[in-house]
Amino acid sequence: MNPSKNFLLLLLSLTLLGSVSCAKEDRQASVSPPDAQAEELYPARIVSMAPSITEILFALGLGDRVVGVSDFCDYPPEAAKLPKVGGLVNPNMEAIIALDPDLVLAVPNATHENLFRSLRQLGIKMLSLPNDTINDLYGTIRAVGKETATEQAAEQMVERLQAKFSEVSEKVAAGPRRRVMFVVGVDPLFVAGKGTFINELIGIAGGENIAGDSLMKYPQLGIEEVVSRAPEVILYTSLNFELTGEQEKQAKKIWSAYSSIPAVQQDRIHGLVADHVTLPGPRLQIGIEEMARAIHPEAFPQAERRRQ
């Protein structure tokens, strides 16, 4: 390669670099409206590493500040169009850094320490917000509010959730506490156990989790335990955004072999939309009512009519 060509290449790359950084400045400039104070909009560029956090950010009205989301974030629909930065266990560091975020939000997992350390070296702030229990969810919403100076909206979101939970639990208070099994996976059978927010949701919705005494969060249950603990309601979740008739048929077929289980006898095998009950975020407001309706249909006469 001759020197002049080398020089040309160098020039070319410098020009490219220049245009990239110019573009970046433009982008940052366009984010802040001229009349707003600059520090109020900090952090201006947020990356969310978990679907539940993405939902909270958008619900707090921070959607236009979210610049990147995990591979699994698909709600709200605007979030699905944002650049993807990998999953929680296999984050794509380059993609995260390329988005030039000033705040990265994640939930605790095996690799978050590493991610945290590498981001700190680059001066990027990262928070790991636990999401195991409903209290964790409140804490997460408040922490996001505090970080983004939207404390008021965050507090309102927490209050709305709390109000919904007490409304639902009052509605079902008169009825019996039904034994509930929440299926997470079949073959082998996994159910939600103690220490999960699903366990708490079942309690709020007037049920008693048959695996509520497990040592593990998601115990693997032998089928004979299901027969002997005799759940009165079996809940499972949809594969995608909605329940399909096919899935319902399959769930009923699986359990039809065990006719001694009350849930099978009384045909109380209900599917719930996965996103509404398995993501600890604002949509639990919808999920809790759907769950309560499945466990105590008699407490929701109007809802029943609407469904039919």
Binding site: G222, E225, S228, A230
Partner: peptide
């Protein structure tokens, strides 16, 4: 097994009994 089994009930002729189901079906 993980659950106590009532052998007498399991061996009685009623196949819809949960104990019978646990022993012979599972």
């Amino acid at each position: 097994g993980p659950t106590p089994l009532n052998l007498k009930e399991a061996l009685a002729s009623d196949p819809s009994n949960p104990n019978a189901k646990i022993l012979f079906g599972i």
